[in-house]
Write a protein that binds this DNA or RNA. Structure first.
Length: 728
RNA sequence: GGGGGGUUAGCUCAGCGGCUAGAGCGCCUGUUUUACACACAGGAGGUCACAAGUUCGAAUCUUGUACUCCCCACCA
């Protein structure tokens, strides 16, 4: 019989092997019940030194379920959070989810498709209701999964980007930019996904190499019989919308021909030859067809040369009336064949070459993106981008590892104005209203509420713009909108700015940059001090993990198999600061073994007449100790120091390796073995003290088992390890 | 086209100017030594991608080469 934690327990009751299933759920409930995830409910000692420490979680999509990236990122953040909480900071980890406009809309549309319906059958309102219903059912699944991992988020502060308060913040921000004159409506060639019927930003594209052809087409000169200029194109169907042929101004082959007129085949339209620096003389024949409405580069050329515009492809991805009778209504691919056939008949097809090129795809549905001219809303980026650059240049925001700032700078320095409108139904609808009576460009106004009367004509019932905002427009406000902005809330005052943003390298520009400038614009302060870019988890073969390819690994299966602590261990064990980690299951096994080792070492210490020591017991070098004791104390001091240092520098893997080594070899192999031959009260105390310290140091990494063992320690006035004092 | 990683034991990775190059997993031999066989004791296994250079000394620094992965970009 032995006395553990104030109650009598049989030795046989303590299992020889550690079983995470017996511990993890139970322990998580204990933490939740304690309320200590909520910084306002932390014990008094935490309010004496009210230094806040805040991390906002990168809000996962409501379509998501936990994948390896989330698991690694959540563990990383939880380590930082638990470490700081134990160090006495007023610690907040704020969770939440993102409505993820296009992604979620697609999921619900797929569901509808199974019922043989589409969103237009329902209508906008019913469709939105349907998405809300979907969200209610599946929207928080991933947050529940994070709990399985041990994430110590303050769930009472969970936010969603479509919460009423959050919607208000988004519209408030839009109005701010609008009033400043930074929001404008314009016609541009944008990336259009015909399947999703929406515009996409450049960052929302994915590229795929595709084998195609390069067609060489002769465009006859108007005034010279039998003479022509040959252009090369991968998309012959777009020639129906050509407005010119362009050559490089320095290209001697064409110099004399600039200004002459060509006859566009099939359409028999007269088009000029223009000189533009964008054209590369080396490509194809050095002469390029210019299709202003269906190519971003061509649009720019057309602006410089004042060319007319012909819209030959519609938003449905089919050829328009303007394409001509023989092509109208055809898909672009059907039309391509038609055009090629016609050209052959006219003997204007010089040659066809095989050609592999990059095709833009929608990042959500993988359909080929169609560049189209369209009226969209833009946010001026020049000032904002400058702010974002300055913040990092002045070290107010730091990237870890540092090299990622280059990705950030490169994008910001070259970015165009941000197309913030999306033709979706799920999202924050633009607070723009159109007058029914007024014509022309000055026919709209902004109103956050539904206007009672039209601000333009005072008589009509204005119609709201149907577009919604880019989902990233709302996530750009995440760090402060979640804390109550634009209201001057207590939370905002207490917890803002946040300390660390931990995220994936894939969204440095999509998200991080935009949060930085938003924060400076609205609060004149950085949103976070450190941006930690965590490793990307790849397959064992070094390929991207992908659900659709079936190469993904489900972290929940790992938790099931090895336990949550071992899963965290396995991820962090490999997170050495490099960019990629290949999935290797043996590291999770190592985690499981390590937990077992801790379990048994603790069993040994606690079943061998453990000494009674006080909770705040601090052993320091004194003359009463043996040589071995002193050595161990020194090693203990060292591991405390290196753990702190590693964590300060985001060296999570290194910290864990050192702790592993310390616990297994220094503590178990060396010190425990030594104490077996030793009969000294001081040594026994030190042995227990060493265990306590190890539990504390390891708690941020493997919180469940350390908490469970701590529970059984013979300490007076014990608290949860969750809020115990970090070793000094 | 531009940029950034990587190449070290069978596998996944540390080490990034200086003791016989390390860990986990795997493998081999032994041990049921009363915390742990998810363990312990011991062991095999590496021209640190290649080449040249700097240095008293290089896996570590420089340059080049090869292979590989990832970003970005308006080569139609």
């Amino acid at each position: 019989m032995l006395v553990i934690y104030g109650m009598t327990q049989n030795l046989s009751q303590i299992s020889k092997a550690y079983d995470p299933k017996q511990v993890e759920q139970k322990t998580y409930r204990l933490w939740e019940k304690s309320g200590f995830f909520d910084p306002d409910r932390l014990p008094k000692s935490y309010t004496l030194n009210p230094k806040p420490y805040t991390i906002v979680i990168p809000p996962p999509n409501i379509t998501g379920s936990l994948h390896m990236g989330h698991a690694l990122n959540a563990t990383t953040q939880d380590i930082l959070i638990r470490w700081h909480r134990m160090r006495g900071f007023k610690t907040l980890w704020l969770p939440g989810t993102d409505h993820a406009g296009i992604a979620t809309q697609n999921v619900v549309e797929k569901e509808l498709k199974k019922e043989g319906k589409n969103r237009h059958d329902l209508g906008r309102k019913k469709f939105e209701e349907r998405v809300w219903k979907w969200r209610g059912k599946y929207g928080d699944i991933i947050l529940d999964q994070l709990k399985k991992l041990g994430a110590s988020c303050d769930w009472s502060r969970t936010r969603f980007t479509m919460d009423p308060d959050y919607v208000h913040a988004v519209l408030f921000a839009f109005k701010h930019y609008f009033d400043k004159g930074w929001i404008y409506r314009g016609e541009r060639v944008i990336n259009w996904c015909p399947r999703c019927s929406t515009s996409l930003s450049d960052l929302e594209l994915e590229y795929k190499e595709e084998k195609g052809k390069l067609w060489y087409i002769k465009y006859p000169l108007k005034d010279k019989k039998n003479a022509s200029v040959t252009v090369a194109t991968t998309r012959p169907e777009t020639m129906l919308g050509d407005a010119a042929v362009a050559v490089n101004p320095k290209d001697t082959r064409y110099k004399s021909q600039v200004g002459e007129t060509l006859i566009l085949p099939i359409k028999d339209r007269e088009i000029p030859i223009v000189a533009d620096k964008l054209v590369e003389a080396e490509f194809g024949t050095g002469a390029v067809k210019v299709t202003p409405n269906h190519d971003i580069a061509d649009f720019e050329i057309s602006e410089r040369h004042n060319l007319p515009r012909y819209q030959v492809i519609g938003e449905d991805g089919r050829m328009t009336k303007m394409a001509g009778k023989i092509c109208e209504g055809l898909t672009t691919l059907e039309c391509r064949q038609k055009v090629v056939d016609e050209l052959e008949k006219l003997k204007l097809l010089e040659k066809i070459e095989d050609y592999t090129h990059r095709v833009s795809k929608c990042y959500r549905c993988e359909n080929t993106v169609e560049p189209l001219i369209s009226k969209q809303w833009f946010l001026k980026m020049d000032e904002l981008a400058k702010m974002a650059i300055r913040a990092v240049k002045k070290n107010e925001v730091k990237f870890h590892p540092k090299r990622w700032e280059k990705v950030y700078f490169d994008w910001l320095a070259n970015t165009r104005d941000w197309c913030v409108s999306r033709q979706l139904w799920w999202g924050h609808q633009l607070p723009i209203w159109y007058c029914e009576n007024k014509k022309g460009e000055d026919n709209y106004f902004l109103s956050l509420e539904k206007p009672k009367t039209c601000l333009k004509c005072k008589t009509c019932k204005p119609k709201q713009d149907e577009d919604v905002l880019d989902t990233w427009f709302s996530s750009a406000l995440w760090p402060f909108a979640t804390l109550g902005w634009p209201q001057k809330t207590k939370d905002l005052k207490t917890f803002y700015p946040t300390q660390v943003l931990s995220t994936d390298r894939g969204i440095i520009n999509l998200w991080v940059g935009r949060m930085v400038f938003s924060s400076y614009e609205f609060l004149n302060i950085r949103p976070f001090k450190d941006v930690y870019i965590h490793a990307t988890v790849l397959t064992r073969e070094g390929k991207r993990m992908s659900k659709s390819l079936g190469t993904g690994i489900d972290p929940l299966e790992l938790i099931e198999k090895y336990g949550s602590d071992a899963t965290r261990f396995g991820l962090i064990w490999q997170a050495m600061g490099g960019q990629d980690i290949r999935f290797a299951e043996e590291h999770f096994l190592a985690g499981k073994k390590f937990c077992n080792k801790m379990w048994n070492a603790s069993r040994f210490v606690l079943t061998n007449k453990p000494p009674q020591i006080k909770r705040g017991y601090q052993r320091r070098l004194t003359q009463n100790l043996t040589k071995e004791d002193k050595k161990f104390l020194k090693q203990l001091d060292e591991i405390i120091a290196t753990t702190n240092k590693d964590l300060e520098q985001f060296r999570f893997g290194q910290a864990l390796h050192r702790l592993y080594n310390f616990f297994w070899h220094t503590y178990c192999d060396s010190y425990i073995e030594y104490t077996k031959k030793q009969n000294s009260k001081e040594t026994d105390k030190l042995l227990l003290y060493g265990l306590i310290t190890s539990l504390k140091l390891l708690h941020p990494f493997i919180p469940f088992i350390t908490e469970e063992i701590y529970k059984t320690l013979p300490l007076k006035n014990k608290k949860l390890l969750l809020i115990e004092e970090w070793p000094k």
